[in-house]
């Protein structure tokens, strides 16, 4: 018999401490490479769309020194557009990643390895947050060519950028796990995410809304995200920034728990 079989020892399983760092990193890299592989659709397309919206509103509304919330309208609009595209892309990343994996059956590749529910949540959400931030940065730089963007408070800006990407990544995960067909997630995108990201104050100050709708706006977490990032840029907010600093992380914590629970129990993931 070949001596290697007599003398050689079978390789032992890799030992993992409290956190499977290598597994987590691999999952994160897979999520990031997934969207970078088709960067025309995942990075350039959102930037072009954002610039088109900017162009339309600049052409339709920019003239005659129109102002919103005390700044030129175009400077009011730009932060909202950046936030809108970040939200839509974070959601698209995690929801499509999970749903495609489920439909094609390769979801087992992430369920089988020794990855805990927390590691799955963190790794996949990390991919969505990365896409959101990259799209936001690219859109911001592209707009900067046309609009004099100034940053009033970088900390507030970064806080809302990260939390918005995280919130929509978690929502996308929950949606992707819940959905069983592409129709389901298309419906959520068309009828929930897109309208909410459009109508939560991206294009207008909510002071323009009727009284009752202003109250409703304050119950909408997306409003705090858009309002918060706009404060980071222009230093003026419709709502109370401190309230947003509480509401947004609270919503994220809740969503994180739900996503974690779904992975832990295998809801619509494991047979």
């Amino acid at each position: 018999m070949d001596p290697i079989f007599v003398q050689g020892r079978a390789p032992g399983p890799r030992l993992i401490g409290a956190v499977n760092w290598r597994g987590l990193w691999t999952l994160y890299l897979k999520e990031v490479r997934r969207f970078l592989n088709v960067f025309t659709q995942t990075l350039m397309a959102p930037v072009i769309t954002t610039l088109l919206f900017l162009a339309i509103f600049a052409l339709a509304l920019g003239g005659a020194g129109r102002q919103a919330a005390g700044v030129p309208y175009i400077e009011f609009l730009a932060p909202g557009l950046i936030m809108m595209t970040m939200m839509q892309n974070s959601f698209a990343n995690t929801s499509s990643s999970i749903l495609i994996a489920k439909v094609q059956g390769n979801i087992v590749d992430i369920l089988m390895p020794p990855l805990s529910a927390s590691e799955l949540t963190l790794g996949i959400a990390g991919g969505g947050v990365t896409r959101g931030l990259m799209v936001g940065l690219a859109a911001g730089l592209a707009m900067w060519i046309f609009v004099p963007l100034r940053v009033h408070d970088p900390a507030v800006l970064l806080f809302h950028a990260v939390n918005a990407s995280l919130m929509l990544s978690l929502l996308g995960m929950i949606g992707g796990i819940w959905a069983e067909k592409f129709d389901h997630i298309a419906a959520v995108t068309n009828f929930v995410i897109t309208p909410f990201s459009f109508l939560s104050g991206t294009f207008y100050s909510i002071e323009r809304l009727p009284e009752t709708w202003q109250v409703v706006a304050h119950l909408n977490p997306f409003f705090y995200l858009i309002d918060g990032i706009r404060y980071g840029f222009i230093g003026r907010a419709d709502g109370v920034i401190a309230l947003g600093l509480v509401v947004v992380p609270a919503v994220n914590a809740l969503l994180w728990l739900i996503a974690h629970r779904m992975f832990a129990t295998g809801y619509r993931l494991k047979p």
């Binding site: 509304l61 068309n190 309208p195 459009f198 109508l199 809304l209």
Partner: peptide
């Protein structure tokens, strides 16, 4: 839905 969204945006943004 998109059409209604555009109408709403332009209504509120342009007043």
């Amino acid at each position: 839905v998109s059409a209604l969204m555009f109408l709403a945006i332009f209504h509120f943004a342009l007043g």
